[in-house]
Design a protein around this nucleic acid. Structure first.
Length: 417
DNA sequence: TCTGGGGTCCTAGGACCC
DNA sequence: TCTGGGGTCCTAGGACCC
């Protein structure tokens, strides 16, 4: 059976989603049609471009660049703030339409997915026709556009979608590689970033065709396993199957925050660490997981980052245990000076099922587990702001770090641990 | 005026064991 | 006194994606 993969990608997702919402609320201007962008808050030192409209792209505005720099390129650029709750709802709506179209789909990011269409031609018609049907359905039901790519493997379907934007269907079958893929700069290939581009160019390889025709042993010698992968991609080889999203386990949880002001001492930093830890531990428990490795990174005002990690003697999902480990890592990492950003992650995950129960023999642990469980129930019922570490009283400016917890307007109560 | 946040995967070096 | 090599685990850091 011939393999057919379809890839769908929302055009300028964050910007489109905000634009659709504003139009529904009565705005007369469609942000997608003028130079515009979604940007972070400059006052909170998060002033970068998160998504831009196609007209903004024509001015050279790029995702990830500082807002002031983008405005230099395009003085009339309209900047709107991000709305993550909206994006999460829009992403879910998008995936519902896709799943309705075909259950054999894999969500690849907030605004992208793959569908395995193999063997479905007899029921739903030629893949190009089906892809166009999906494009129309999303536009009619949700009001935003997608680019859809069709090919015989995931990487080519994804690259196909890049060929024509917005609101379009493109194919990139193996027979079309020479015409459509190979003339493109090597940087356009999936997984070729700035560093790899530099190495490839130094080897005399500047377009995808040159990579496809190069000696794979030589590429492997310079770029390792990764080199073999991109060489295969350039030749349209990608056996990676479409795995439904509910069958792809989460590998790690992480949370980080750039602070509105630099912090200068452990007394200021530890409360933030505590906040991140309780928020992330809650998220991990909600996912039914325990971790065996905790990591911490600190970024100073010069953007130098240091990271340390530690393997636990046994897996844990208990907030105060995780915080104890993170605090020890902090003192190992922190050499004094200013801290601009702080991040933590929990990895090497295992299922929490039955695990906590086995720790109940230890009375002090049992207490901690009960405390976490009670806090989680309160958060689930009354929202993440219903409970906060008492340390937050000393640093209320960091209250916004819990954006992954459920929201509620109920009054907050401080919890003494 | 600078430069977010959440992920995955790979590599390399050191420790340790057999 | 001087000397092996293979395997695994742990940790730090980098590259890439959206």
């Amino acid at each position: 059976m011939k393999r057919i993969i379809i890839h769908a990608d929302v055009n300028s997702a964050f910007l489109s989603w905000s634009a659709v919402r504003l139009l529904r609320e009565g705005a007369c201007q469609d942000l997608r049609l003028i130079p515009s962008a979604v940007g972070g808050d400059e006052k909170l030192r998060k002033g970068i471009i998160l998504a831009k409209s196609i007209p903004a792209k024509k001015y050279g505005v790029t995702t990830g660049e500082p807002i002031w720099q983008a405005k230099k390129k395009c003085p009339d650029l309209v900047i709107i703030p991000g709305d993550y709750a909206l994006y999460s709802r829009m992403s879910n709506s998008f995936m519902s339409v896709v799943k309705d179209f075909s259950p054999l789909c894999q969500q690849f990011s907030v605004d992208e997915c793959f569908i395995d269409y193999s063997g479905m031609e007899k029921v739903l018609g030629p893949p190009e026709q089906a892809a166009d049907e999906l494009r129309k359905r999303v536009k009619e039901r949700l009001g935003f556009t997608v680019s859809v790519g069709v090919s015989t493997c995931k990487v080519l379907a994804k690259m196909a979608g890049e060929l024509k934007k917005p609101d379009a269907v493109s194919t990139l079958y193996p027979s079309e590689l020479e015409e459509k893929l190979w003339p493109l700069p090597v940087r356009e290939l999936f997984l070729v970033g700035r560093a790899t581009e530099k190495k490839l160019v130094s080897l005399g390889i500047s377009n995808i065709g040159a990579l496809a025709h190069s000696d794979p042993q030589m590429i492997k010698k310079y770029l390792g396993l990764y080199g073999t992968t991109i060489w295969e991609y350039s030749n349209g080889i990608d056996p990676d199957p479409v795995i439904p999203s509910d069958k792809t386990p989460v590998k790690s949880y992480s949370q980080s925050a750039t602070l509105p002001v630099d912090l200068l001492s452990p007394d200021e930093i530890i409360p933030v660490l505590s906040k991140l830890c309780s928020s992330l531990a809650y998220r991990m428990r909600s996912g039914g997981a325990c971790c065996s490795v905790v990591s911490l990174y600190l970024k100073d005002s010069s953007f130098n980052a240091v990271a340390h990690q530690h393997r636990l003697s046994r897996p844990s999902d208990i907030t105060c245990e995780l915080l104890k480990e993170l605090t020890a890592l902090f003192y190992k990492t922190y050499q004094g000076g200013s801290v601009r950003a702080i991040g933590i992650s929990f990895s090497d995950l295992c299922s929490a099922e039955g695990f906590s129960l086995s720790l109940f023999d230890d009375r002090s642990l049992a207490k901690k587990i009960i405390i976490d469980g009670t806090c989680d129930k309160i958060k689930n019922r009354y929202g993440g702001k219903a409970l906060s570490p008492a340390s937050e009283l000393l640093s209320p400016q960091f209250a916004h770090l819990t954006r992954y917890e459920p929201t509620s307007d109920r009054p907050r109560t401080f919890c003494p641990f």
